[in-house]
Write a protein that binds this DNA or RNA. Structure first.
Lengths: 163, 163
DNA sequence: CAAAATTTATTCGCACAGGAATCATATTCA
DNA sequence: TGAATATGATTCCTGTGCGAATAAATTTTG
């Protein structure tokens, strides 16, 4: 079995685990992982538009629209047209949405977090560096797909200049 | 931003990149990554049933059924009832299916492979080790969710005894 | 042997996820 | 100014993914 197969299998396991955790979250809180991620992004960003959210959470605009639909239906988010630019839509948390954000549990599965915290520090750093490196290697080709969650201070020193 | 956020963001980028590569494959070959993975599993296993395939590729039975539907519609796979056990279904590659398997391109994106091969050997090892470690940490908790792609020899020695 | 429990595959409902197409609004430039 | 272009959001379509419910067959058990 080649290295590529090993990588592929590990990736499939990881993707599946993340998906399973998402369903677990849905049972616990009524919200899936993508919904919680978007909600958190909305909490950080004032005047968030589908476009900016799309960049912030690395999802396509149609996907963001679909998730916002559900969040709006659940009463956690409101949408209104921007007064400055009639094309844009501004999404905001409702009080219930803010409540949901602060009550949100960890998105990563408890088992992973436990194991991660138990690991020696060098291994934690190795894992983070490797994941960032893989992400970088994978979307280096579509140059415009790299934006990601820019916040005030760039805490992710190792990542280097995206975009 | 916490380490957890960094991990989560890297994972989302990776998941997105894998998904995008799957659509690229669809454009190139008419088959998505999960379809190709299933096709390859069918090539390895004689008398494959949805159940056995489900274990082999780490997908749920309903998902396998859905993918088999499309592969059958495309004329790459045939299904027939098992004569020994009327509950089971046996899926087999057609000649066209065998052809598709042997013509299948790399499932990982070219950009990633290029970057990976260019990386120094220590980094390649680090990446593989980290991905396997993360996969392991993530599905260690649901013990029964670990099956994974067992092939002749178990090359993923670190994973420990599944079920 | 017949009823109950189990196993296997499938259907159904839901939530992503993205590309293509569409519609409305802004911007550019001839 | 007015037409061409660009941008932003959404809709439509297809394809995963899974859990729950269902159907069909087999095995177990009373």
């Amino acid at each position: 079995m080649s290295e590529h197969d090993v990588i592929l299998i590990a990736l499939r396991r990881i993707i599946r685990a993340v998906d399973i955790r998402s369903r677990e979250l849905e049972r616990e809180t009524g919200l899936t992982a993508p919904q919680l991620v978007l909600l958190q992004a909305l909490g950080r960003e004032a005047e968030a538009t589908p476009k900016s959210l799309s960049r912030a959470v690395s999802l396509s605009p149609p996907t963001v629209t679909a998730i916002l639909d559900r969040l709006e239906r659940a009463g956690l988010v409101t949408r209104r047209r921007s007064p400055r630019d009639g094309r844009s839509v501004i999404a905001e948390l409702t009080p219930a949405g803010r409540e949901a954000v602060s009550a949100a549990p960890e998105l990563l599965q408890a088992g992973f977090l436990r194991a991660f915290r138990r690991a020696p520090e060098w291994e934690q750093h190795m894992i983070i560096a490797a994941l960032q490196r893989v992400a970088e290697m994978m979307d280096c080709q579509d140059v415009d797909a790299a934006p990601i969650l820019e916040r005030s201070g760039d805490v992710t020193q190792a990542a280097g200049p995206d975009r």
